[in-house]
Amino acid sequence: MSRSRHPEVHRSDRVGWLRAAVLGANDGIVSVAGLVVGIAASGASASTVLATGIAGTVAGAMSMAAGEYVSVQSQADTELADLAVEQRELHEDPHSELEELVAIYHHRGLSVALAREVAVQLTAHDALAAHARDELGITEELRARPLQAALASAGAFISGAALPVLAALLAPHAHVAQITTATTLVGLGVTGAMAARAGGAPPLRGALRVMFWGALAMGAAALIGQLFDTAA
């Protein structure tokens, strides 16, 4: 007899990279598009508009990389400090550490006897790993990786910023602001829908959400650019 299969698709394992990718790409699109639209609205030359977009891309990517690295490195430092504490406590008072595991497993629904058996076997296998996972919530898959986070954020920012930069490069100078705005809104709609779909949310809602904030940002940038009319 054939066995019925019940495949389960979970999306919680995507949270880490999905957050970083969406944040980086959307930040790249909106930030650089805002710069391009604002400078174009001021009446600046085509070369100035393009230089502004490229400079904004480089500065934004470096800023994203530095911010993500510092943030994730702080998390990594905290994890290492907590693991050092656990290592010391396992050396100085292994009995109390074992009882901590027993209490954790019993609280999760195991009988005391079974909780103790599980705790004893996991401690014998790798005591520090058991405490890291079940007491501290630190797993190898979800551990902080600062360099990886920095590179991913910078790459996502550059990929998003490429859209308004290309629009500024290829559009007729007289219509740079309008074409960049329209192109950016389309790009935001696509990335928003893809991110929502990957996370299991309605794509249309995700698209409209990021398009709204993108339009608001570019509208504000255009108003500020018009205050500094360089063509006058």
Rank of each mutant, 00 (worst) to 15 (best):
E99C: 07
V22G: 03
A51S: 11
T48V: 07
L80G: 01
I104R: 11
A20L: 11
T123F: 08
D77N: 10
E100D: 09
T78G: 11
A103M: 13
M62T: 09
R116E: 15
H107C: 05
L136R: 01
A65Q: 03
A127D: 05
V70Y: 01
Q121M: 13
G56R: 11
V85Y: 02
R133F: 01
V112Y: 14
A59P: 01
A46N: 10
L151N: 00
L114R: 15
L110Y: 13
A46E: 13
I138N: 04
Q87P: 00
L136D: 06
P146D: 03
H95N: 08
V120S: 11
E100K: 15
L80A: 07
L101Y: 09
I104H: 06
R133V: 03
P94T: 04
T123P: 04
L83R: 13
G38M: 10
A129K: 03
N26K: 06
G43Q: 09
A127S: 13
A44C: 09
A84D: 12
G28M: 09
T52E: 02
G137S: 10
A76P: 00
A124C: 01
R145M: 05
A149I: 00
T78R: 07
G43E: 12
R14D: 12
G137C: 09
D77G: 00
G16I: 10
A44T: 09
Q121S: 13
R116S: 14
G53A: 11
V72I: 10
A41W: 12
